[in-house]
Design a protein around this nucleic acid. Structure first.
Lengths: 197, 197
DNA sequence: TGTGGGCATTGAACTAGGACAAGAAATGGA
DNA sequence: TCCATTTCTTGTCCTAGTTCAATGCCCACA
């Protein structure tokens, strides 16, 4: 087992809970390493799979497509972060309403729902890790909801820059517009106005 | 111990995980029953307490106040639902950025963070329950974010009516406007237009 | 070395929803 | 019961952001 490979993800989950080497070993043995080319769709809307992916390298996006065909990005996944569908698989296995797609060539650790259940069974402390991850994610999403309702487009863009300083160099601008909930044309105008200082 | 009192909440947590009577007993012994008058603020912005409350009876709201003083409701808590702050208390005890306030006279079960930790220690399966609750909450919040960005005010209001048919009779209309992210005046106009069918 | 398809920019016309103000209706407290 | 306060409605004007269309750009690739 290549230790350096698992180092980042093990440090990630150890931020919240202390694990023994043995427990981390079980965790690591359930991870599947995947190299994925850019523009690969990992999860199609309507598919039942709710996997969890940890981004080692690269960049992904998770998005809805609304009835009239517009894409709406709900999350970017970059290095050292988790991305996955959170449909209510366990007690109500609905098909997913989101797409997950790579933006750059990416390296991921993925875990199937079944393997995740096995992980919970063998190392129950992981329930705690994923509870806390959920909780953080929820807090971030609530803040975004708040921002989306009560802040102007340029405020939102400035806050986005603070949170993801590297993304504007990495992803097409209209993805950022979609994430901020504004039209690409308007984002272009916002940027122009902000540059004039 | 009054069984009928605990019946609802026990049924609520048993939706996701099966518990023994003993485990439910431990859970129930850590709950604090509170009767709260309407318009009582249970959590002020800046306070450190992140409690979790289960609504037996009544109605609550959770809201931000933005820098220019406008309230923004992020959640209504009604019968048989959970409401609480989800700041990252454990690894990063930030003061809360939200208020939680009763709208009607309410009966609640509350649990302090310490008692919750004790619950997790004594009945680890509760990590799972709260993970799933978080997960559901996150899914709902993502849907709201999606709606807030890509749907019109009247669409949002109609969907709100479907989701909370009883709330318009129970809470002031401008709370609903705040929840939907539109001005109270505009909600009034939306309702008028919808009534003309 | 050209070329075609995504991207970004700009402008003009338009619209959903906001802000403000004033009045009407409902509610609640003593 | 009455008064005060909160809540709801309606109208007018205003603005942030949209939509559409045209133009130019950048590169990926044959």
């Amino acid at each position: 087992m290549d230790n350096t490979l698992y180092e980042t993800i093990n440090r990630n989950v150890s931020r919240y809970v202390r694990f023994t080497d043995e427990e981390l070993g079980i965790f690591n043995s359930l991870l599947k390493l995947q190299s994925v080319h850019k523009k690969t769709i990992l999860l199609h809307e309507g598919e039942k799979c709710n996997f969890e992916a940890f981004v080692i390298k690269g960049c992904l996006r998770k998005y809805y497509i609304d009835p009239d065909g517009t894409e709406l990005i709900i999350q970017f996944g970059v290095e050292d972060s988790w991305i996955g569908d959170i449909s209510f698989s366990i007690y109500d296995p609905k098909p997913s309403r989101v797409f997950i797609e790579t933006i750059e060539d990416s390296e991921l650790f993925t875990m199937s729902p079944d393997d995740k259940e096995e992980l919970y069974r063998r190392v129950p402390k992981f329930e705690r890790v994923f509870r806390i991850l959920m909780q953080r994610n929820l807090a971030v999403t609530q803040d975004r909801l708040f921002a989306s309702i009560s802040k102007s487009a340029s405020q939102k863009y400035l806050e986005f820059l603070e949170q993801y300083p590297s993304l504007p160099q990495r992803v097409p601008q209209h993805y950022i517009a979609s994430y901020l909930g504004i039209s690409p044309e308007f984002l272009s105008k916002v940027r122009k106005k902000l540059a004039h200082r």
